[in-house]
Design a protein around this nucleic acid. Structure first.
Lengths: 178, 178
DNA sequence: CAACTAGTGGTACATTTGTACGACTAGTTG
DNA sequence: CAACTAGTCGTACAAATGTACCACTAGTTG
């Protein structure tokens, strides 16, 4: 914080670097492949660096998964910025085609949360990804149907390529709100 | 097949025993905890037995997950036996409360299938669990909405206890078909 | 009955993993 | 400037894991 590159700051940067690498590994190999060494190699830093910046493997895994879901939520919110269903559908379709790994990571968090109550809040937050403002004026039943449709679209997209396009996604979401 | 306990038959029985143990481990610790040793210990048989009856860890994991999902589908079909939505809702609610592990296993299969195309067929079959006859006369859009609702119920149930009861499940499913 | 084979179970081994430690250095702070 | 500390990195180690191998035996089969 004084002048030029401080050690402190470079430390923060490396931590960031490690998390980014962790996201890459997570998207590619899933939670099962997320090891200290894999992350360190991906980031191009020595192993000890990965063990220094994260207390344990749990910390690393959790940071990565939470970061991945946060990135997903952020991306959806940014791109759909309160402009209604069409924008939301477009954002979702884009996320599905360009960041498949992130979507999978979301479900990995979900499965994790099924066994660890502490993660439930994070998991449900992910599930609602940016729909709070979008569905502000919608009654609970329809809201639930909408979320179910979103889920259905995501799950289906994970098993089929090509991924559904914006129009298809939009049609399904609109139908859910009918 | 000749008389009394043949060696062949005892072999089959042990294999069965191992798969059952694998289901228990899977339900308790998830795919991550499914190792040769864990299964062998759970089944009360030596390690070498587990490695003999399954070619590799992949074979073991796959057998267990497929078995778990098959059990889920079978249970749903048996209990809902073509008697309409109420019976189906009851079967689903029961599965959620009594065999949570199985449901989780289903999603583990799903995540696995997201990375391994060979498993897609099995995963989609699981997703449709016994709805083919139930929804025979329903148009595609509604059918899709119904499946989405089922998914939504399951996902929600994994993160909240107590699990939704039959009435609640039924209400949601009926609404989806409206 | 004799040859064969599927199943059993003990043991060993190479890999991979999480984690700890110690020496060193570059910033930081009193 | 001197003491301190956060960050770096090589290295080591114990634990867990997948897998292979071997000797053995009880059914099986010609």
């Amino acid at each position: 914080m004084t002048e030029s590159d401080g050690r402190r700051i470079r430390g923060q940067r490396r931590r960031r670097q490690l998390i980014d690498a962790a996201l890459t590994v997570l998207a590619r190999d899933g939670l099962a492949g997320l090891t200290h060494r894999a992350v360190a190699t991906e980031a191009g830093v020595p192993l000890a660096s990965a063990t220094y910046h994260f207390t344990g493997i749990d910390d690393l895994a959790l940071s990565a998964v939470l970061e991945a879901t946060a990135a997903f939520v952020g991306s959806i919110e940014d791109r759909s910025g309160g402009s209604g269903i069409p924008a939301y559908a477009a954002a979702l379709a884009r996320e599905l085609s360009e960041h498949r790994g992130r979507v999978i990571a979301g479900y990995e968090l979900y499965l994790l949360a099924a066994r660890r109550p502490a993660l439930r809040e994070a998991a449900t937050a992910w599930l609602r990804a940016g729909t709070d403002t979008l569905l502000a004026d919608v009654d609970p039943l329809r809201r639930r149907a909408f979320l179910a449709a979103v889920d259905s679209v995501c799950l289906k997209a994970l098993l089929t390529d090509p991924v559904p396009d914006t129009a298809e996604v939009e049609a399904l979401l609109v139908h859910a709100l009918r």
